[in-house]
Amino acid sequence: MRISSTKARSIDSETGILPLINIVFLLLIFFMLAGQLSASDPLAVEPPESLSETLPEERRLTLFISDEGTMMLEDTEVALEQLGEEISGRLSQEESVDLEVKADSALESTRLVQVMSRLRQAGVEQVTLLTNSRR
């Protein structure tokens, strides 16, 4: 004996699929934004394979400048007069060096300009000035 309800069940078939559609569209938007972070090459080029199993190390030098103007290149204290010689010596030893400058926010801008001028004379072409982000 089968007992059935006299009341017809009303099943809304769209309620179960709407969250799935929302998730699919959110994933689509995410991959559209995250997928193209860098520009593609103008030509399709297949570079040769490297025989070396290790990747080249990217060397970074960091120049710290205090609010009084005291400078430290990595762990060595350097005077402004010696900065050009020290940097050019380090640049000649390494093939590729990225120079980062971390200066105190209270440092006078004229002093920072003097340091940048010495770095340019030493042959530094690009400097990354490290800053704090606003929160």
Score class of each variant (00 low, 15 high):
76 T>S: 10
27 L>K: 05
70 T>P: 00
59 R>F: 06
44 A>P: 03
32 M>T: 14
83 L>R: 02
20 L>C: 11
127 V>L: 15
35 G>I: 09
57 E>Q: 11
90 R>S: 01
13 S>Y: 12
84 G>L: 01
60 R>C: 03
23 I>D: 08
113 V>Y: 05
104 D>E: 15
100 E>A: 10
60 R>I: 13
124 V>K: 04
33 L>Q: 06
39 A>N: 14
4 S>E: 10
115 V>K: 04
37 L>S: 11
127 V>S: 05
128 T>P: 00
67 D>L: 07
95 E>C: 02
95 E>P: 02
25 F>K: 10
73 L>P: 01
99 L>P: 00
113 V>T: 15
2 R>K: 10
15 T>G: 11
111 R>W: 07
71 M>V: 03
24 V>K: 04
115 V>Y: 13
108 E>G: 10
98 D>W: 05
77 E>T: 15
103 A>N: 02
122 A>Q: 02
8 A>L: 12
84 G>W: 00
4 S>I: 09
120 R>S: 15
104 D>A: 15
36 Q>C: 14
104 D>K: 08
62 T>D: 04
120 R>W: 07
108 E>H: 08
121 Q>C: 02
134 R>I: 09
19 P>C: 12
99 L>A: 01
6 T>V: 08
99 L>D: 00
54 T>L: 09
96 S>D: 02
86 E>Q: 07
20 L>D: 06
16 G>H: 12
110 T>C: 01
28 L>K: 03
47 P>E: 04
50 S>G: 10
84 G>F: 00
36 Q>M: 08
8 A>S: 08
72 M>A: 13
56 P>W: 07
118 R>V: 14
53 E>A: 15
108 E>S: 12
129 L>F: 13
130 L>I: 09
48 P>G: 06
111 R>K: 14
27 L>T: 15
131 T>L: 04
33 L>H: 05
29 I>Q: 05
76 T>A: 12
35 G>P: 01
41 D>N: 14
33 L>C: 07
72 M>E: 08
52 S>Q: 14
81 E>Y: 02
73 L>H: 03
63 L>V: 09
6 T>M: 12
72 M>L: 11
105 S>V: 14
87 I>R: 00
131 T>D: 02
120 R>C: 06
128 T>M: 03
120 R>D: 13
130 L>P: 03
7 K>P: 00
63 L>S: 07
